Simulated assay, not measured.
Amino acid sequence: MEAIIESLGIIEGNQEKETEGKDENLVKELKDGSQMMVANLYPPCPEPDLTLGMPPHSDYGFLTLLLQDEVEGLQIQFQQKWVTVQPISMAFVINVGDHLEIYSNGKYKSVLHRVVVNAVKSRTSVASLHSLPFNHTVRPSPKLIDEANPKLYADTDFNSFIAYISSKEPKRKDFLDSRKLTSP
Rank of each mutant, 00 (worst) to 15 (best):
I4W: 00
M37F: 15
G33N: 01
N14E: 15
E12C: 05
V27N: 03
K17H: 14
Q15T: 12
S7P: 05
Q35G: 05
Q15S: 13
L8F: 12
N25L: 11
E18A: 10
E24D: 14
I4Q: 02
I5T: 12
I10Q: 04
D32C: 09
S34A: 09
D32H: 13
N14T: 10
I10C: 10
E20L: 13
E24I: 08
N25C: 05
E16I: 11
M1N: 06
E12Y: 06
G33S: 06
M37R: 11
V27H: 03
K17P: 01
I5Q: 07
G13F: 07
I11G: 00
K22I: 06
I5Y: 03
G9I: 08
E12R: 13
K17D: 14
G13Q: 06
N25A: 11
L30M: 15
K17W: 08
S7Q: 08
M1T: 09
E2V: 05
Q35D: 02
Q35E: 06
L30G: 02
K28P: 00
E2S: 14
E20A: 13
G21E: 04
M37S: 07
M36S: 06
S34T: 12
I11S: 03
E18L: 15
I11M: 03
D23N: 13
E29C: 00
K31E: 11
T19G: 13
E16F: 03
E20S: 15
D32G: 09
L30A: 04
Q35W: 04
E24V: 07
G33R: 01
M37G: 05
S7V: 04
E18Y: 07
L26G: 00
S34H: 09
I10Y: 02
G9P: 09
G21A: 01
K28A: 12
L26T: 05
G21D: 15
I11H: 02
A3F: 07
Q35A: 10
E2H: 14
G9E: 09
I4G: 01
G33C: 08
E2D: 13
E24R: 09
E29M: 12
D23W: 04
S34E: 04
I10D: 02
D32V: 02
E2Y: 07
E29I: 01
K28Q: 08
K17Q: 15
G21F: 02
G13A: 14
L30K: 00
L30C: 13
I10M: 08
G9N: 12
D23L: 02
A3C: 06
K31H: 10
G9H: 15
D23P: 00
K31I: 06
G13C: 09
M1Q: 09
E20M: 03
M1C: 10
E18C: 07
G9C: 11
M36A: 06
G9Y: 11
G13S: 09
S34I: 08
S34Y: 03
G21P: 01
M36W: 01
D23V: 07
M37I: 15
G9Q: 11
D23A: 15
L26E: 01
T19C: 09
E18F: 04
I4P: 00
G33T: 07
